[in-house]
Structures are given as structure tokens and as C-alpha cells.
Simulated scan of single mutants.
Amino acid sequence: MLRVTLVDDFALKPLRAPHDEDFHDLIALSRQPTSESVQRFLRDALRVIRAATDISGDVNQALFWYRNEPLPVFDYKTAEQLVSDGRTDDLLRYVSSLEAGGAG
């Protein structure tokens, strides 16, 4: 049931090839690879992307969702914004609830 929900959500916008500007933030982060806040952000981002990939079955869809899909339950912020705001655990609970058929 969750797989259908996330796949439907991902299908709202077409996937496109990544561009250099898509990696601007990651390039900037890579300049301070030992910074604890950078490492925490990267770990949290990977946790969320992995959870979304497990549900959707497609890493490209999961990445697109993470960067672009506004989430109504979180005041239309994207998953990436929520991770930046330190709300990774809330986001992972939401993704888990989708998997269980709750929120989606």
C-alpha cells in the first residue's frame, strides 16, 4: 500500500537528469568533510533517502522525492528541508507510517 502511495507521489513530477546546480550544496559540504554538522546532515540525508528507496524500490524516485516533493503534513516542506531543520526522526516516523498504510 505504501509503495503505491509513494510511487504515485513521485509520479506527480517528471524525473530529469541531474544538473551541476543540483550538486552545488553537496560540493559546498564536501569542503568541510570533518565538520560534525556536515557529517550529521549527510548521515541523516542518507537515512531518509534509504527509507524512501526501500519503499519506492527506485533510488532515482527517492532522490527526486527527497529534494522536490512538498509534504503537506510538514507545512509543505520537502524532506531535504526537514533534514536541514533537524527533523529527521519526525520524517522517518512519517515514512514508516506510510509504509504501514497510516499517513498516506
Score class of each variant (00 low, 15 high):
residue 10 F to N: 12
residue 49 I to V: 15
residue 81 Q to K: 13
residue 82 L to A: 01
residue 95 V to C: 05
residue 20 D to H: 07
residue 98 L to C: 13
residue 7 V to F: 03
residue 73 V to Y: 08
residue 53 T to P: 06
residue 102 G to M: 03
residue 49 I to F: 04
residue 61 Q to I: 11
residue 102 G to E: 11
residue 28 A to Q: 15
residue 93 R to Q: 04
residue 52 A to K: 04
residue 77 K to R: 15
residue 1 M to W: 00
residue 98 L to R: 04
residue 43 R to I: 12
residue 14 P to F: 02
residue 47 R to A: 03
residue 48 V to I: 06
residue 93 R to P: 00
residue 13 K to H: 09
residue 11 A to N: 13
residue 41 F to W: 14
residue 61 Q to A: 15
residue 37 S to E: 14
residue 30 S to C: 04
residue 42 L to R: 13
residue 93 R to I: 01
residue 63 L to Y: 07
residue 99 E to T: 02
residue 15 L to P: 02
residue 68 N to Q: 14
residue 89 D to M: 02
residue 58 D to Q: 10
residue 3 R to P: 06
residue 86 G to K: 09
residue 60 N to V: 07
residue 5 T to W: 08
residue 3 R to G: 09
residue 41 F to K: 09
residue 93 R to M: 02
residue 29 L to V: 05
residue 23 F to C: 05
residue 38 V to P: 04
residue 57 G to S: 07
residue 19 H to C: 03
residue 68 N to H: 15
residue 38 V to D: 01
residue 43 R to L: 14
residue 52 A to Q: 13
residue 44 D to C: 11
residue 72 P to I: 10
residue 48 V to D: 02
residue 48 V to M: 02
residue 92 L to H: 00
residue 87 R to D: 01
residue 55 I to H: 04
residue 30 S to W: 02
residue 86 G to C: 09
residue 63 L to H: 04
residue 88 T to P: 07
